[in-house]
């Protein structure tokens, strides 16, 4: 967890699940992009903020047993790819659940949580995680 300013810079996007919508094709992106990978130059200047609902379903998941220092206290934890109902796929943890209850296809919703704590500075990072809907 190096460069702390980098993590803070992205805070509004993390806290509100703020992505972008392409004004040319209507596709939605998270994390935010300034250029639509489908429309390329036709999307320049047409990307507008879009707040995702945070609702989605588990596309695939893993239970992480070997984790970096900032996540040591949380292990084992469930990490998943969540297919959001707005379109984008997102990587995030699924919490407040017995790992045995996790299944591909289960509905989830986003929650605002502590993500990790930097070992050296003690700084706490916040962002989105998911719980069963």
């Amino acid at each position: 967890m190096g460069e702390l300013s980098r993590m803070w810079r992205e805070s509004p996007n993390r806290y509100r699940l703020l992505g972008k919508k392409c004004g040319n094709c209507g596709r939605k992106y998270f994390p935010a992009r300034e250029i639509c990978p489908v429309c390329h130059r036709d999307s320049i200047g047409k990307m507008s903020d879009f707040e995702l609902s945070g609702n989605g379903e588990i596309f695939t998941y893993t239970i992480v047993h070997e984790a970096p220092p900032a996540f040591s206290r949380q292990k084992p934890y469930v990490l998943a790819l969540i297919k959001l109902e707005d379109g984008p796929m997102i990587t995030g943890q699924v919490v407040d659940v017995d790992p045995d209850e996790i299944e591909v296809g289960k509905k989830v919703r986003s929650v605002f949580r502590k993500i990790a704590q930097d070992g050296k500075s003690g700084i706490i990072f916040y962002g989105y995680k998911f719980t069963l809907a």
Partner: peptide
């Protein structure tokens, strides 16, 4: 910022693909 920050590791990403492939 959008994978490792959330707790993803190289092994975890491989596991996400493996779970889906096996299923």
């Amino acid at each position: 910022e959008w994978e490792a920050f959330e707790g993803a590791t190289p092994a975890a990403l491989a596991a996400l693909s493996a779970r889906k492939y096996i299923k």
